[in-house]
Nucleic acid binder design. Sequence first.
DNA 1: GTCTATACAGGGATAGAC
DNA 2: GTCTATCCCTGTATAGAC
Lengths: 208, 208
Amino acid sequence: MSNSLEKPNKCVDAVDRVLAAAENLFATCGYDAVSISAIAEKADVSKANIFHHFQSKRQLYVSVLKAAAAHSHKLLMGLEETESGFTDRLLELTRGQLGNYLSHPEKSKLLMREVLENTSDDEIQLLKDDFARNFSRVVSLIKKGQAAGELRSTVDPALVTTTILASNIFYFRTRHHLLELSEVNFASDPDTYISGMMDLLLNGMVNH
Amino acid sequence: MSNSLEKPNKCVDAVDRVLAAAENLFATCGYDAVSISAIAEKADVSKANIFHHFQSKRQLYVSVLKAAAAHSHKLLMGLEETESGFTDRLLELTRGQLGNYLSHPEKSKLLMREVLENTSDDEIQLLKDDFARNFSRVVSLIKKGQAAGELRSTVDPALVTTTILASNIFYFRTRHHLLELSEVNFASDPDTYISGMMDLLLNGMVNH
DNA sequence: GTCTATACAGGGATAGAC
DNA sequence: GTCTATCCCTGTATAGAC
């Protein structure tokens, strides 16, 4: 019982410890830079034990990826869509998405790597499907906003969606570097960033 | 002479062939996934020859990186700043930046990898300095636009810059995936994308 | 400068005892 | 399920001939 606070936590299954260690290492170092030995050491199991539970390094990686994808899918489905106006719904959706990235940085990094690189592996097609669904969700929200007359019909919904997604991912991945830029004061405050970005996207930067 | 069209081109120095092969492989596969053997084969030299010209794999990588940074720096400095209004200058700067990415995809991928990951290696500090300079350049352009009253003073110049940079990088890196999304019709046409994005950032999406 | 041959470490993966 | 011991391959890097 007193061991339950140790790291690695021996109270959880070895398999789960391996998955956790692998997720952590793959996320921070990338697939090739991580060795089975490193994962074994971090999870406090033997190399052979890993190969007992997972066919190969690649298959372990895919397992980690699928778990992350499932987790991310649940989070996305859980994002509340308030019944207020379209702009507020879009704001909340965007804020929620970035919040998910920031609360689960390792899973997010893992998934982004796969979506950003073009590995075109059949096993991870479901990641892209998830990405596409998420994309469509925002697109249709914007289309509804246009149909309701709240949003300009001359902007391309897919382009707006791309810009939002790009901003969120870029902010998440480069926050550390942005902190070092003297002009940037929103690097440590995601809420400020989201508010500012949405104001920009909604109202534009031109003086009318 | 008739050999001058072969691949790899034996008419160029072995060192240059190695650098070219390394750039290509590092850009597409990442540092860890590339072996000296693979570079040697692609450059049509022996492994030992590579180690004769470069102290280590890491040092070869840094050499490739520095060459790419120098090249990119020249391109950036060459970006014309037209003497028209601020919005036009911003549009041209943005278009030029994305154009540079697309014309030199391998160098761009290499540099982006280093800026997006946080390796914090002293040897590549110059990459970050370059990035910061480029960032500041856009920021000050926007500030001038605000001072001139052409742009709203309530938007954060650094935030606009971040959004533009994010959009360009994201577009460059995910164009392939965007092609598969039925809602997206700008994936194969960078000019359309840039025009749409800048219209969005300048005028916003709200119906006024 | 370029090669062949080789040293040596570490990688993924397996065998077999417990 | 978990381990120790081991296999074989590939990786980086070096030695030394040409």
